[in-house]
Each structure stands twice: as structure tokens, then as C-alpha cells.
Design a protein around this nucleic acid. Sequence first.
DNA 1: ATGAAAGCGCTAACAC
DNA 2: GTGTTAGCGCTTTCAT
Lengths: 333, 333
Amino acid sequence: MSTDEPVTLVAVARAAGVSKTTASDALRNSGRVSEATRARVAETAIRLGYAPNPSARSLRMATTGAIGLHLPDNLTRSEYYMSFAFGAVEQAARLNYNVTLIMSRQLSGPGAFLPVDGVILADPLETDPVVHGLMSSRVPVVTCERFTGQASPDGVVRSEHAAMFEELLDRLHTVGARRPALLASSAAGDWGASLQASFRQWCRRTGAPALLRELPFGTAADEVPDCVRDLLSDQPELDALVCAPDGAAMVALPVLRDAGRRIGGDLLLASCVDSAPLRHADPPITAIDLRPREAGAECARLLFDILSGTAPKGTERALRIGINERRSTRPSG
Amino acid sequence: MSTDEPVTLVAVARAAGVSKTTASDALRNSGRVSEATRARVAETAIRLGYAPNPSARSLRMATTGAIGLHLPDNLTRSEYYMSFAFGAVEQAARLNYNVTLIMSRQLSGPGAFLPVDGVILADPLETDPVVHGLMSSRVPVVTCERFTGQASPDGVVRSEHAAMFEELLDRLHTVGARRPALLASSAAGDWGASLQASFRQWCRRTGAPALLRELPFGTAADEVPDCVRDLLSDQPELDALVCAPDGAAMVALPVLRDAGRRIGGDLLLASCVDSAPLRHADPPITAIDLRPREAGAECARLLFDILSGTAPKGTERALRIGINERRSTRPSG
DNA sequence: ATGAAAGCGCTAACAC
DNA sequence: GTGTTAGCGCTTTCAT
């Protein structure tokens, strides 16, 4: 209030007439000081407006109480990553950790590497410099999906994308789809790559033509309409469309309809990423449920286990995902 | 790789045959050392796998490169707060800050107060202990919406909720609503309180009965159906329903329909918080657009301005919000 | 162009 | 029960 000089522990100690050790112990209820002095110190601390310096504490105790989370750039608008992040945040809070979202591009200068006890990397791209920086930052790293680059993380949470994707294709096949197309996501990450591979393999197995169009990771929405129109004119016999990038299916929907196709009728539509709009679309659109919230939570849990020594480094955990089947893939006539 | 003892700056300095000062300067390109030694030190650092200790750096430089963000507990699933958070994160990244989500309940112990240069409090509730802790943590505080408690933050970003809400009511009135009801949110925060007050005032002005039901902040969904049914049986002449809590309108929709009401026909429906499902609902539901992304971004900007001395403490900034009018309030018959 | 020393604010040994 | 001392790993004077 009065002066601007920061109130440190020594200031409190002096004012209370004790040593800084005693002050420290008193404020942390270490059970070392007498009740009388404890109260006196506590009162003084409040009076002076003392607040502990977290950096000093972290430096001394070699722990920060926070874990870092890095998401792919340009994807901070996607429902998937938001849910993922909050799943991690919620679980971390339960384990008494806070979460720092590491999004700053600047790798040097203040804020380059921050005080965290470990980091979670969601869908780490080899091409992301921040990923490289964090991988070599000497704190434990957990990734969601495998890192396709050189270094290997201390823990991995991965989902059975390929299996679930093939299951989706099988279901489409069962209800009649013979010429399905994939609007693919970039193969730069584990997820995008494995979907593309699965698709080609499935097409080979079933003898279907591998109708595939790749969109860049993130920022896909703008290019979807042209891509879909292009696909339709190239392949008029198309009878199913599976969209990988988050949000692409919602963009494709009106385009397909404008082209005279009936969704759930002569054209089946599905998405590889579920989201709220898909549930409420007309017709509701079938999607793979990636359970982002659980994925984030599981990453936090695994990182915690590694930090606490419960899980050995190199642990890999599987996350169960599913399919939310909706009307867009249930031909009604 | 080889040993587990942490690689510190002195270790690098020793290995490179220089003093720690020189090592430090070399690694930060301070332009003090000769190119030859700079290269040698850099090479040594990489070879040893050196990573700077962020806590030590923060302690010394009295800055952390991160800002804190606290959201109301139990609301980490809401689209509004997720968008808010990511709006803040994105803007902070632009200003070269990272964001720490402070959600851990534990106020003492490790992770109690973390290394942040300032904090953003979204819709701070007087009843939230974390809010109190942060308010007295000696770092600058920016709130989104006014804090109804004692302490006053260093900056405030607020929206014209009352005005926009009354505008919404006026529009409903224009298209014929004479007996609108409000499914209110708790009055514990600034937002909930101001909506309730506005509603009563508007009712007084227009001579409408103040049909109001209050739901607790967060966790509202479970109680909405009963509340709506109760309202309908109490007030059969109800001709419009405005839902304040995020998500309540989507829950109310089927309940109203089951009760035989036609949305957009004999009953108008609107929400005080927009979200993706509302846009895609049948019929699409009118909602106040709180622009959460911009709110978060503006908070980050204001906090940055306060930290850098550009904005004086006590600054208050307004955020423009709007109304997304949809079919649920456009009577078509 | 480089080193030596001081010290950021705190907690943990080790006295008494 | 309390005080003294020694660092945590770094950046920054101030010398040379």
C-alpha cells in the first residue's frame, strides 16, 4: 500500500522480530514454531501484504507446481484441442498442478522456457520448433500420439485411430458404400499419416479406388469447398465422403447438398473428428469420437505418474476411442 | 544422457573453460564475448544437453514470461470459457507471453502461487477462495466483468450486458412477447446479478410480470428440465423464454417442445450465451453474442498494457457485444 | 574481451 | 523453539 518496495520474507521476519527461518516455518505451518510466534508472524505478514515469491520457492524446492501443454499452432480454435486442453487442466488440478499453455513462438528471451515440471505435447509435429525446444528442455515429456521425429518422449498416450477408422469404413461399406473418398489431413503428424495409410490399405483390401484429397493441417476450412466440388466432378459415382480435418464435414455438407446430393441418401458423410455442430447438424453427422477430454486427462495422469516415479519412462498408454453413428450414414431409402 | 546430475550453467562454463559470466553471455548472444568463444560455449552447451533453469532466471530477472488465468470452477466444460481462455492464450502468445491456467484448489503447498507476471480473472466470484488468493498476490490483476467483492483489480474489461439484454427483451416485445420469463443464473457474480436486475427493471417499465427462476452458477443443466416444466405449469400464458446459463436453452428446447409449444411460433426462445449448438439447432436459437474470444484477448491486451506501463492502473475497457438473431425469435406464423 | 563477486527470495542443514 | 549459514542457478554490477 504505502511503498512500492516488494515485501519479502526478511521484511516480515524483521517486522515480527524473528529470523527468516522462523518466519518461513511459521507461514508454512511447518510445526516448528510456537503457536504464539506463528500467530504473530502470520498477522505481520497480512499487515504488510506479504506474498511469497514463487520463483524463489521453485528454485529452492526444484519444483514448480505446473506442467506445460503445447498444442499445434493455428489450431487453437478447434473444439478438439480446446477440450483436450481443458481435460488436461481439470485432471492436473485434481493432482494439484496448474497447466501452462506454451504457445509463445519466441524461443529465446524471457518466457522462452518456463518453470514447469514436465510438458504435454498434443500431436507434436516434427516441423514445430517449439516441440523441438521442449523435447530438449530436460523436463519429462508426454506426447499425445507418437512423435514422428527423432527424439522419443518419456511417455505416450495414443489412440487406436487406424482400427477405428477402418471400422468406420467397414460400416460404410456394409450400408452400401463402394466408392468412398477421404478428405485427408496432412500426413505430417502421426494421426494424419495413419489415416491416409489406413485408407489406402482398406481400399486395396476391398478393391475400392483410393479417392483421396489431402488438405494442409489446420486452416483447412477455406479450401474445403473447392476441394469437394473438384472431387464431385472428378468422381461422379462417389457414394461416401469421410472428412479428416476438424470442421471440414460441416463445411462440406452444404456444398454436397448444393451439388444435388442427398446426405444419408445417395451420399454418406462422416467425420474423423466429432464436434458439437455435427451432433446438431441436419442430418446429424456420423463421426469418430476421439474423446479429447479423456485424452488430455490421460496425458496429465501419465505425466504425473512419470514425475512421481509411479510409471517408468517410456510408458505407452492406449486410449479407447469410439464411433458416434448418426443419420448421415444410415441410408433411409 | 550419461549421468542424472542436472547440467547447469557452471557445468557448461567449466567444460568450455570459461567463467559462468562468459558462458551466460555467450548463450544469450549478449554481444559481449568473442565469436570464437561464443561458438565454443554454444557447442559445449548442446553437447552436454544444457537447458537453462527458468526459475533461476525468473528469480534473477523478476519476470516470468507467463500470465495467469483463472476461470470459475466447475465451468471448464463451457464453450464460453474455453473460447475465452484461448482468446487470451492467442493474444498473449502474440505479446510473447504464455498463459497458466490456475485451477488447482490447493492454496498452500507447491503450486500455491505460481510464477506469473500478472493474472486475469474471468467472472470472479466473491465466494471463490482462489480469487481472493490471487487478488492479494501482489501481481497486477485484470478481471473480466467487475469484481463484486471488496478488493479492486488493476484493470477491468467489461461488456454492456444490461444494455444488450434489454435490447433482446425489446426485440422480443416487438414481435409480440408480453409474458417473457427469465431462467436466471446465480446473482453471485456481476453478470448474473446485472441480468436479473435488468430483467426486473424492464418488466417494471413494460408492465410485464417478472417471471424469473434462478439456477445455481454452473452445473445448471440437470435442473433445467424440472425448472422449465415448473415454469410452464405455473405460467401457461408464457410466450417467451430467455435462458441465461450457458447451455440451458439447448436443454430447454426439447422440454418446451414436449410440452406442446412451438418454438418460434407460440413461444419465443433465446439464450444469453451463444454457442455452436444454438446455431445448428432446429430451429436455430437467438442468442446474445458475448464474443468470448475477443473478451479473453482484450484481457490479455489490457494486462500487458498495465505490465508495460502503457495503461494506468484502474483502467476500464468496454467490450462490444451483440445479438445473433435467429429463427427461434422470428415468429413465422 | 573476460572474471570475480554479489545477490534475487526462499528453504533446508545444522547448530544452540 | 529459534537463529545462523549455506546454497538453489542464474544475471548483473564492477573490476581488470
